[in-house]
Amino acid sequence: MGDPADLRRHLVRRAFRARYGASPAHLLLLLASFALTLYAGTRLLDGSRPVAVLLWFAGAAVLHDLVLVPLCSAADRVLHALLPASRGRAPAATDAVRVLNHIRVPALLSGLLLLVWWPLVLGPPAGYEGSTGLGGEVFAGRWLLITAGLFAASAVWLLLGVLRRGARRVPAPGPETADR
């Protein structure tokens, strides 16, 4: 067969995967992310107002669960209602879901950008321009341009996918069509 050392390494990896459920690299990445989260949490709570930070986290969790998830679900239902073919199992439903995903992804990214930068997009706080030297009126326009760019890139990506799938579905001319 192969080198006995290679076989042993393969069997050890296989046994690890059978017990853990994933590769050792997954476990290392998971432990590294926990370490980074712990470091960030200790740095964040090390400030002068740890209670305010904890309240902010609790408020963000409540806002996410009670406001953002229902809004996203309602928007998704509206999208499904606008594309009735998305409810079936036919190839048309697969295409409709593909279109839905090309709407969902840029909307999610745009919403995430708005969530992170909403104080600046809606109007920076007083004293912002004096502290940074940047005018606050540009952020809403920049966010709208980024949003438009995300939707345009998604539309181009969808169009290229449709064209690529359409090219695969067109049968090549065979000998029987060449004689005509």
Rank of each mutant, 00 (worst) to 15 (best):
W117I: 04
A74E: 12
V116F: 06
S73F: 13
L120A: 03
R165F: 02
C72F: 12
R164K: 11
T177Y: 13
W157V: 11
G21E: 03
F34Y: 14
L112M: 14
A5D: 15
E176S: 13
W157C: 11
A61H: 12
G161A: 03
F151Q: 01
L38C: 15
P4G: 05
L100V: 06
L120H: 00
P125H: 08
M1C: 13
V62W: 09
A22W: 09
A25P: 02
L115Y: 11
L54G: 06
V162T: 12
P106L: 02
G111E: 00
R104F: 07
L144H: 10
A93Y: 00
L145D: 07
P173F: 05
H64Q: 11
P125Q: 11
L28W: 14
R14K: 15
L82M: 10
R77K: 09
T132K: 07
L45W: 05
A40C: 14
R89S: 13
M1K: 11
A93Q: 01
T37L: 14
V116G: 07
P70L: 05
L27C: 10
H80P: 01
G136D: 01
A61V: 15
V97P: 00
R8T: 09
L150S: 03
V12R: 08
L27F: 07
G2Y: 09
P24K: 07
Y128D: 01
A167D: 04
P91V: 02
P84Y: 05
V116P: 00
G59N: 07
G135T: 07
A32F: 05
D65K: 13
V51T: 11
L150T: 00
T177N: 14
G88M: 04
R77C: 09
L100Q: 02
V105M: 08
L134N: 10
F34A: 12
Y128K: 03
Y20S: 07
A25T: 08
F57D: 10
R8E: 09
L113D: 00
L144N: 08
R13I: 12
A167K: 03
G88I: 02
V121T: 03
A178G: 12
R165T: 01
L7Q: 14
P125S: 11
G88V: 03
D179T: 14
V69R: 10
R180D: 09
L38Q: 12
E176N: 12
L100N: 02
A140L: 07
F139G: 00
L82E: 05
G41S: 10
H102N: 06
L134W: 15
S86A: 08
G133E: 04
A22P: 02
G174W: 03
D65M: 15
D3K: 10
A96V: 02
R43C: 13
Y39G: 14
A22G: 10
T132R: 06
S33L: 14
L83E: 01
L29H: 15
L66Y: 10
L109K: 01
R98C: 04
L54A: 08
L44D: 14
Y39A: 15
A5L: 15
L112E: 07
Y20M: 08
A96F: 00
A60D: 07
G47F: 04
L7C: 14
L54F: 04
A178I: 11
A96W: 00
L122F: 09
T37G: 10
F16I: 02
